[in-house]
Amino acid sequence: MGHGGNVIEELMADHREVEEMFARIQAMTGSGQQLRDLIDEITIELVRHSVAEEQYLYPAVREHVEGGGLMADKELEDHGRVEKILKQLEKMDTDDTRMSTVLHQLMQEVASHVQDEENNLFPMLRRACSPEQLDDLGDKIRRAKAMAPTRPHPAAPSTPMASKLLAPGAGLVDRARDFVTGRGKS
């Protein structure tokens, strides 16, 4: 969840972690509880990552990067699509015939989003911000991920202020639900 380093290093480490989880799913031959546990793990990581980006990364992009408003809006649209897919997966049984298709859709959406951030947004942010600003953003991202929800909430507002106000409460409720059910403990 927290890897250390500046904002770009932190988020890229998250990207590699999710890619590794996707590779584990692709290597699976069955379904059942093992698949559900891995989907839950991916969901937890993606939701925490997205909330932190919405609270701190995209506002910084809007502030420091030329044309950053349009870039941030596009990334938020990506998050919305991913969150809807995650919500769909949360409701599906692992033996549902559509599971493979929906997982593939999730992997494609996330891969496209990661590629865009790493090839476009991150280099522009690195040029626009000082090392100190990037380090500070990394710290903020790690704190936000620690407090973020662990379940998709596609209807929740994605503005930075609303997210900062609502995410800790939703995160507390999600973590309590996870504790009771044992979700995310594998």
Score class of each variant (00 low, 15 high):
159 T>A: 02
15 H>Y: 01
23 A>D: 05
105 Q>T: 09
4 G>A: 12
13 A>D: 06
169 G>D: 12
124 M>L: 13
9 E>I: 03
102 V>Q: 02
27 A>P: 10
139 D>G: 13
172 L>S: 13
114 V>T: 11
174 D>T: 13
171 G>D: 09
96 D>W: 03
122 F>G: 03
113 H>S: 05
163 S>V: 12
40 D>Q: 05
63 E>R: 09
135 D>A: 10
22 F>I: 03
119 N>E: 11
165 L>D: 11
76 L>P: 09
181 T>M: 08
86 L>Y: 02
59 P>Q: 01
82 V>C: 02
4 G>Y: 05
158 S>G: 07
177 R>I: 15
112 S>Y: 14
64 H>Q: 15
110 V>F: 05
69 G>E: 15
96 D>M: 07
115 Q>C: 13
63 E>K: 10
5 G>S: 08
175 R>E: 14
147 M>N: 09
129 C>N: 06
19 E>T: 01
143 R>N: 08
46 L>H: 04
102 V>W: 06
30 G>H: 02
186 S>V: 06
124 M>W: 00
16 R>P: 04
94 T>D: 12
185 K>T: 12
26 Q>R: 11
12 M>T: 08
116 D>S: 07
46 L>R: 07
79 H>Q: 08
176 A>W: 12
44 I>Q: 01
9 E>T: 14
109 E>R: 09
177 R>F: 15
80 G>H: 15
129 C>R: 09
49 H>P: 12
93 D>W: 00
180 V>R: 00
23 A>E: 06
103 L>W: 06
41 E>A: 08
63 E>I: 05
27 A>Q: 10
128 A>W: 12
185 K>D: 13
27 A>N: 10
29 T>E: 01
117 E>G: 04
78 D>G: 01
180 V>S: 08
153 H>I: 13
109 E>Y: 13
100 S>H: 02
129 C>I: 04
118 E>L: 04
145 K>Y: 01
8 I>A: 05
118 E>T: 05
106 L>T: 11
121 L>H: 00
73 D>S: 13
61 V>E: 10
59 P>I: 06
17 E>H: 06
152 P>Y: 07
107 M>N: 02
94 T>Y: 00
79 H>D: 03
54 E>W: 07
144 A>Q: 11
93 D>M: 07
5 G>V: 06
161 M>D: 14
113 H>M: 07
142 R>K: 08
158 S>R: 15
89 L>W: 03
176 A>T: 14
68 G>R: 04
119 N>M: 09
158 S>C: 08
28 M>D: 08
73 D>N: 01
56 Y>R: 03
69 G>L: 11
131 P>S: 03
90 E>M: 08
100 S>F: 07
122 F>N: 01
16 R>D: 07
71 M>V: 12
63 E>D: 13
172 L>V: 08
139 D>A: 12
26 Q>L: 04
182 G>Q: 09
69 G>Q: 11
172 L>T: 13
135 D>P: 07
99 M>L: 15
32 G>V: 05
139 D>L: 12
127 R>L: 10
107 M>T: 03
120 N>R: 03
9 E>Q: 15
82 V>S: 02
13 A>K: 02
103 L>E: 11
159 T>N: 06
37 D>F: 01
64 H>S: 10
123 P>L: 06
25 I>D: 04
27 A>G: 15
57 L>Q: 04
174 D>P: 13
168 P>A: 00
169 G>P: 02
106 L>C: 11
